[in-house]
Write a protein that binds this DNA or RNA. Sequence first.
DNA 1: TCGCACTACGTACGGTGTACGTAACTACGA
DNA 2: TCGTAGTTACGTACACCGTACGTAGTGCGA
Lengths: 235, 235
Amino acid sequence: MVGRPAVPEVIWARPERAGRGPRPAFSRADIAAAAVRIADAEGLDAVSMRKVAAELGCGTMSLYNYVPRKEDLHELMFDAASGGYEFPEPSGDWRADLIALAHQAREMMHRHTWVPRLMSPVYGFSPNALRYLEYTLSCLDGVDARFGEKMELIAMVNGVVTTYVANEIATAERSRSLPWSEEQEQAARTGYLISQIATGKYPRMAAGFAEDPGPIDLDGVFDRALHRVLDSFDR
Amino acid sequence: MVGRPAVPEVIWARPERAGRGPRPAFSRADIAAAAVRIADAEGLDAVSMRKVAAELGCGTMSLYNYVPRKEDLHELMFDAASGGYEFPEPSGDWRADLIALAHQAREMMHRHTWVPRLMSPVYGFSPNALRYLEYTLSCLDGVDARFGEKMELIAMVNGVVTTYVANEIATAERSRSLPWSEEQEQAARTGYLISQIATGKYPRMAAGFAEDPGPIDLDGVFDRALHRVLDSFDR
DNA sequence: TCGCACTACGTACGGTGTACGTAACTACGA
DNA sequence: TCGTAGTTACGTACACCGTACGTAGTGCGA
């Protein structure tokens, strides 16, 4: 009898080791690490129950003893990726602290490009997500604001980070599953865009692209957006 | 011979009607509408090539004459959902105009809850996306800013709308595929959260939730975030 | 009129998540 | 101490997915 429940269950509420029966061959960390290895190497879509089980060296259905649904595997992955943060003692300058944390998050997502895609479906509070949240709140200890306001600030910062990194990554991550190169794809897209602009139906876009400011400075765009959000809370 | 290309291609660059052969039985709008019907009724994951073909009343593989890859079907869906905007003459108050547009977008995403999930993978410039962009730029005609700055503003506004609506929707959209009710799921999640907070490991979250400000005012959260973004460009 | 590019679509392949059944194993209650 | 209940392990099977490929019919351009 496989222990899949007929009632909602948070995977983190399950004990890693049940009382009876043989001792589990793998820990949650083992499983998460295997899934993360696959996702890093071949992309999130390559993470299947079969492949993770093979990576662990066990039968496919054995995995279901540890992870009742694939969604829970994603939750393990997200938590594992969130486990690498450094939480230095808050400096007293909450803006600087949040900026540093946002940069950590951005770097993590560049290392694990599948994380932004997991942000929407995974809305749970995994252990490392809770640690992250608590630390962020600690950075705001000196700020005179209600809890709700602080949470809104944190949500906006996290939102900006996720949104912007997702955009930065989009092309690269997409091209993994395509039978042609990223450059070819880009060329086709921009070619169509240029042809559309050339129709004259979009004069403002035409004027804008005529300026040609050279390649986009992604770091600058990210930092400006981040600073704007922080400024908007810093009246 | 099915006309699937070995080279990248933007679906919008394809002519709807080829010269030779029998006239196509469906238009792109027909196909998009069928897919949208399914997604609205059963969720995005229920949109498969087979189901869309069945909804149209044709064989599965016939659909590939119109839509070379499933990704293109998503692009059609996104464009169809973006086709319902109203673009009133800009009032001269760009903040008000962008707020109105953001509210339109939010309402659209509440009607078509699958749109936020399509925002990341679909990064193309569909016809209606271009119209939307051009209109947004026209709202900023009087603003003294470079093209790049305006685009950054638009990106932030769109980002906020998508992020926030995605969060608003997450629970409801998720619960569609689950064998239990949304309320049961919520209860399990918050139950775990409470148990974690009760451990004392997260004192700031504990203190915050102890305040208990009642149910979250989603409209207010959305509007505040939107206003903050606009303010940050309005020095 | 010829030929070719197109439409239509059935079949088939390799993949997916996971329900279910069976066998081995171990900690707990008696 | 000894069942036995609950766990681990895992093979098989089902329904579904995207889509490659082949074939037949259709109608425009030459």
